[in-house]
Each structure stands twice: as C-alpha cells, then as structure tokens.
Design a protein around this nucleic acid. Sequence first.
DNA 1: CTCTCTGCAAAGCATTTGCACATTG
DNA 2: CAATGTGCAAATGCTTTGCAGAGAG
Lengths: 152, 152
Amino acid sequence: MDSTGVDAGLLRSRYRLTKQRSAVLHALDDGEHLTAEDLLDRVRRQLPGVSLGTIYRTVDILRELGLVQIFTHNGMAARYEASLSKHHHLVCDVCRDITNVNVPTLGPVIKGIAAQYRYDDVDASLTVTGRCASCAARAPASTFEGTVEDRD
Amino acid sequence: MDSTGVDAGLLRSRYRLTKQRSAVLHALDDGEHLTAEDLLDRVRRQLPGVSLGTIYRTVDILRELGLVQIFTHNGMAARYEASLSKHHHLVCDVCRDITNVNVPTLGPVIKGIAAQYRYDDVDASLTVTGRCASCAARAPASTFEGTVEDRD
DNA sequence: CTCTCTGCAAAGCATTTGCACATTG
DNA sequence: CAATGTGCAAATGCTTTGCAGAGAG
C-alpha cells in the first residue's frame, strides 16, 4: 500500500491505513466537491465491494484529521474535497453548478468578527449564490433587484 | 385577522392569508434562528392543531416571497428567521450557540467575486465558526493552531 | 492475537408529498 | 363555489449505527 503520498496523514494518525481509506483519499483527488455517492463510484472502480457506510465513516475521520473539507449548502447532500487549499464556493441558483473560489480579502473580515465577539480558533465558510454567466445568457432578462424565483 | 403588519407581504402575494401562515409569521418574531420544531411549538400556542408539514410549506413560500431567511450549517436542522436585516452567523464549535452578526465589510468582497466570475443577482452567506468566549473560559488551554477536536 | 475496520441491513432524522377534508376569497 | 390550503401519515433522501465476520499491526 502506498504510504508516502496522500496516505501519510492517516499513517501518522491513531487510525489504521486500510485499502478502503487509501482509496477514498485517492478518489478525493479525482474531482471537486464530490458527494458521498460520487466517492463511492470512484472508490468502487478500484475496490468493488466498498459500502456507502465506509465512505461516510472514512470522510468523518478524514475531517477530524483535517484532510478533507466538507461543503454543504441548504439541504443539499454534503460535498467532500481534499484540504489542499482553503477556498469558498460560488453556487449557481439556476444550474446548481459549484465553483471553487479563493477569497484572500476575507481574512481581515473574519479577524475583525473574531475580535469583536471574542471568538478563538475561528474559521469561516463563505457561499456566494447567484446566476452564472451561462444561465444568465440563456435566461429571460432580469432587470430588477433581489431574488429571482420562478414558481416552477 | 391582522392585515397591516407582518401579514402585508402575504396579502399582496398570490398566496392566501390563512391563520396558520399568519401565526408562522408572528412566531418568527418570537426568537432568532428557530428550527421548524421551534416554530411549531410557538405556532401551536395560538393554534393547537397545526402540523409540521404546514410549517415547512409555509416557510417555503415565505422564503419565495423574501420574508424569511433560512440558515443551515453542516448537517444541522435548518433555522428560520424573519428577513428584517441581512446578517450572517457566528457558530460556537463547542456549545453550538449561534450569534447573528452584521458584516458591512462583506459587500465589496462579494461584488468583487461576482464581477470576476460574471455572476448576476448575487447574495452571500458567511458562517464563522470557532470557540465562543464562555467556552474558551471553561475549557483547557488551547495554544496550538487549527481545529480543536476532542475524541468525544 | 487483539483491536479496529468493514459490509450489510436496519434505524434515524429532517424534510417532502399524496390525499381527503376544510377554508379562503 | 372553485381554487387553494391543511392535517395526517406515509414516503423520501441522506446519513448513522449495531452487529458479526474480516483484516491490520
């Protein structure tokens, strides 16, 4: 089993390095903001017998070890991504597409809030919603402010 | 039925103003970031027969009308609040307490992202997590950086 | 060899939905 | 009175969990 790459974090931890966990770790590099089902599909290409329960148990310990970030928005299924770099998300209200985005200017904003409310060890997640360029091109004009809600 | 206060938005809409909906609207003023169950409890004080299904259907149309904001974080149950003013949330990792927070400096950050990625009609939700002052006081010292994860 | 992990299947929980009856405008 | 809304209970979808056997160290 590969013990020098993405697996290193697990090896150093109090958890055992199993082939299922290694496969999940590798699958995480195989796409952005993957759902548990997405991960299951990818993991099963290598290791057909793996169960969804194992995916959930694995991402949970990877989160505890700081190796994955979990993204949720409204009631949608959780998305998992390797903790390579801190980033935030842009979600299209129309097509539900998710884009990763770096927001370097957010740091000072968060520091300010932490200081004002006396919070320690702060982290933050910013989710920007709106209509992406392709959906705007495809859709009827919208000249008014505020939420654009179709009544289905 | 009161038709001049919080009910006005519903009255002007294509939806009927029922006593259940009015009660939900009033219940929303009765606390911050309330869960569906919280709303149900409050609504039932006035109107004992109301069902959870009605709460969910009602908050959904209120969201569509822009009268409530919905806050979710990780897998937690959704929280509902009247759309009085735009605000964001501070969530304590330890006690799970939620604090509303105004973040006036966020506007330019979001505008920048919208421009860069060509998104229209953008909105944003910022959730800052960390350890609140009372939990920090109560807990063992934490001098290292990063997430503080107790193994239960 | 012991402790941890896994697959399976069942349970859990928040939310949604179908339907027959009640209510609104 | 026609259209819409409601209560109830069942269904849904994601996630978690108990257990007995498999695998890691």
